[in-house]
Amino acid sequence: MASYGEVARRAGLPGRARLVGRVLGEPASAGLPWFRVVRSDGRIAFPAGSRAFREQVRQLAAEGVLVDKGRVDLAAFGWDRDLDRLLWAPPQPASASPSCGPRHGNSPRRTRKA
């Protein structure tokens, strides 16, 4: 989970939250996990009760994300909690089971040549 502004900041475009919203709304972005992006205060951006609102709540619930009164607790479910750890933590042993989702163990490791 992330806010539109957080996605923009991490993409190197601080202050461009509306651009992120526009991009996620484009048909070419259909394969992106748009439902994981919410307003900076955790609120779903669609009107309550709309088809898009219900679909976002449904998809978030399927991933175990609680939506309460149209809002997600970003402190509990946001990127700040897990993304940096997932990106920069040392690789886990193959037998370990990560607590926050699948690991992509088939990606090449970067090593420095001596």
Rank of each mutant, 00 (worst) to 15 (best):
A2R: 05
A2C: 03
S3R: 04
S3E: 04
Y4D: 05
Y4G: 09
A8M: 06
R10T: 00
A11S: 12
G12K: 11
L13N: 02
G15C: 08
R16C: 07
R16Q: 15
R16W: 01
A17C: 08
A17M: 02
A17P: 09
R18C: 01
R18T: 06
L19E: 07
G21P: 07
V23G: 01
L24T: 04
L24D: 03
L24R: 05
G25D: 13
G25K: 10
G25F: 03
A28Y: 12
A28I: 11
A28M: 12
S29Q: 11
S29C: 07
S29M: 14
A30E: 12
A30Y: 06
A30H: 12
A30D: 15
A30I: 13
G31P: 03
L32S: 01
P33R: 14
W34M: 00
F35Y: 15
R36D: 11
R36F: 08
V38W: 04
V38M: 06
V38E: 02
V38I: 08
S40E: 14
S40R: 11
S40L: 03
D41H: 07
G42H: 13
G42T: 04
R43L: 07
R43T: 15
I44E: 09
I44S: 01
F46D: 15
F46Q: 13
A48E: 12
A48T: 10
S50W: 00
R51F: 06
R51M: 04
A52Y: 03
F53T: 03
F53G: 05
F53H: 15
R54G: 00
E55H: 06
Q56S: 03
Q56C: 07
V57N: 08
R58N: 00
L60C: 10
L60H: 04
L60W: 08
L60P: 03
L60E: 02
A61S: 10
A62L: 14
A62K: 10
A62C: 01
E63H: 15
E63Y: 05
G64R: 12
G64Y: 11
V65M: 00
V65I: 13
V67D: 04
V67W: 04
D68N: 00
D68F: 03
D68C: 10
K69Y: 03
R71T: 14
V72L: 05
D73A: 14
L74E: 05
L74P: 07
A75H: 10
A75L: 09
A76M: 00
A76P: 00
G78A: 06
G78F: 03
G78M: 00
W79N: 02
R81T: 01
D82K: 07
L83I: 08
L83C: 01
L83P: 00
L83Y: 13
R85C: 00
R85Q: 07
W88P: 00
W88H: 12
A89S: 15
A89E: 10
P91T: 10
Q92N: 01
Q92G: 14
Q92P: 03
P93S: 09
P93I: 01
A94D: 14
S95F: 07
S95E: 11
S95T: 13
A96W: 09
C100F: 12
P102R: 14
P102T: 07
H104T: 04
H104K: 04
H104W: 10
H104F: 12
G105N: 05
N106T: 09
N106M: 09
N106K: 10
S107M: 13
S107V: 12
S107L: 12
S107R: 13
P108F: 06
R109N: 02
R110E: 11
R112P: 06
R112T: 08
R112H: 02
K113L: 13
K113T: 11
A114E: 14
A114D: 06
